[in-house]
Design a protein around this nucleic acid. Structure first.
Lengths: 209, 209
DNA sequence: TTTTGTGAAGTTTTTCACAGCG
DNA sequence: CGCTGTGAAAAACTTCACAAAA
């Protein structure tokens, strides 16, 4: 069964919350309480969870530990993903140390850059290669996912290198630009300037002056 | 007229593309060409633009410079926003230098941290204050927007300080956690770990093992 | 002709409302 | 009783398809 993207997005949030509740020793939680804490409607929480079977207990709520395990299995990977990080500037370096990147679901296995001062070095314990060598390095190291923290002007060239490698399946790009990729390659974008523009747009109260 | 969030998101992309086309000396572009370059359907491009009046010429397309100016006015701010950046770790520092943050629509006017080594210093030319002083500093400096690059565990406390100030209207948070804020305060989140989890989820082909 | 602008249709996502179970 | 699970309704968003303008 196809799971919608907004649902996956919320599942990750449910999981985070449940981990926290579990640490606090909480045994049971209702959809209403979860929604309250996450800013999501209770009916939405129930609908999302219902796609995966009857997990809750009527009149009671959801068993925290059980639900946590359940979502964990839904989100689980069949493997530990190996990830290549392209562009070791400030943002790339920040992501290397970011809490989002401490997971047993994947690991950053190689860095890529064009700066001779970085190529050949280890940074935070990860070896840095030249961007030109990306296709062969990702093949050798079985890297299927790339994270792009390069300037907009360099991003498409990185995608092209990834396509050339024939083994990269997915890309998470932080470059503020559109990217063209072939069918079958999954590209997600985190566009910081778009988010900031949206915030400012709705802050001023919408269109017009 | 209310403009939908997905439309604003695309308007920012159209604007970027048009600036680029203008630099290249291009005079006219069709909805189909814009869509092609951005991975958006031509009908979607036309629908988005049509909300703001008849901007194109039938049989011809859109005049690049004119459309650029038009979107610029739609996205324009009534003021130069002053922004406070909370949390001067690697990510915060990266954002300070990020291309998304070179804009004449806003400027980073103050930094906040709890690290005694940073408080009292200027970093990239911006003064750093202690988080505890946030309410008064944002009032003095007329800061209405905060960017949070703090750990998840510290994020809610920052929101609470922002609420206390009574002048902060909007927050862009990079902390991987839900935040509760009162009605009227606009909170947007950029959740890197959620995006990565989504990518990996759909890479493995959806739910289940 | 070409390409826009747009009502109508289609699709996706959210919310409602209540039956059903513990 | 309280809370889940879920069809049905509503809302939001996208795509179609074509009339109308250049």
């Amino acid at each position: 069964m196809r799971v919608a993207e907004p649902t996956v997005e919320r599942l990750v949030q449910y999981y985070r919350l449940l981990e926290q509740l579990r640490e606090e020793g909480r045994l049971v939680v209702s959809s209403h309480q979860m929604g309250e804490m996450l800013g999501i409607k209770a009916s939405q929480v129930r609908k999302d969870l219902s796609y995966f079977g009857e997990i809750g207990k009527r009149g009671v709520g959801y068993h925290v530990d059980r639900l946590c395990g359940h979502i964990s299995r839904i989100l689980a990977s069949p493997q530990i993903w190996r990830i290549g990080l392209v562009g070791v500037g400030h943002l790339g370096y920040a992501l290397l140390g970011h809490s989002a990147f401490r997971s047993d679901k994947f690991r950053i296995d190689a860095l890529f850059d064009v700066d001779p001062a970085k190529v050949g070095q280890e940074i935070s314990g990860v070896p840095c290669f030249h961007l030109n060598d990306l296709p062969e390095v990702v093949r050798e190291r079985d890297i299927q996912v790339l994270i792009l923290t390069v300037p907009a002007s360099a991003a498409q060239a990185c995608v092209d290198k990834a396509v050339e490698s024939q083994v990269v399946k997915g890309i998470l790009s932080f470059a503020p630009t559109a990217l063209v990729a072939p069918e079958g390659m999954l590209v997600y974008r985190v566009d910081i300037s778009v988010e900031l523009e949206k915030l400012l747009f709705f802050l001023k109260g919408g269109a017009g002056v």
